[in-house]
Amino acid sequence: GPRMPHLVMEFLRCDPDERQLQNKITAHLQQMGWEKEGNPGTFSLMCLMADQTLFSIVEWARTSIFFKQLKVNDQMKLLHSCWSDLLLLDIITRQVLYGKEGSLLLVTGQEIKLTDIASHAGPTLASLVQRGQELVEKLHILKVDRQEFACIKFLILFNPGGKQLEDHHYIESVQEQVEGALLEYTLCISSHLLGRFAHLLLFLSELRSLSSLAEDYLYCKHLSNEVPCNNLLIEMLHAK
């Protein structure tokens, strides 16, 4: 393979194992009484999965390089402002790396046909799914790999913009280091000078705008009491 920047290897090392995550969350849902082949299309099951995925995201961040050096107050500020980006990135990454066309691969390994989702979804959810699908297709064409996704996760986490951070300079310097590592990596694997890197940064901004819409959608669902009592998900929805 291409020569990999040291930092990119470190990011990969921090990345949780997909199979372990799948087993952990499946076991948790079964413990809560959800049948594996039950009714995975329900909105509340998706919320439970999102909630459990959030736990894994916090655990990933907490044990990751750079983040664990921060004070808890800064850690909370960073996570509060990017949790929905990270959640959406998790879903999109799974589709690009392991998913099949025309279906949504869940964190538990179950698959739902996109046509089934579309037939049950209202206009807002249908449009969110459609836009997410377009992002997945773009990344498929670019053949974005695990290394790049791992870098993007850190770019999302270490976003110093608009927050009252104690360690602002440190967070800014980490962001620069991550960008540098991603740029170096994309230059190694792509002959199109800067093109690939620019595409990935564009994806990042599209992801942020979509996750912001998804967060609004979830918040509305929460206000109408349709989000089941998922501790971390609700807490994050209240954070903004």
Binding site: H80, L232, E235
Partner: peptide, 18 residues
């Protein structure tokens, strides 16, 4: 406001006391 974020704080803090 801190109470609202009790779970996240707990998750981030839990091993720091070990």
């Amino acid at each position: 406001k801190k109470k609202d974020n009790a779970l996240l704080r707990y998750l981030l803090d839990k091993d720091d006391t070990v």
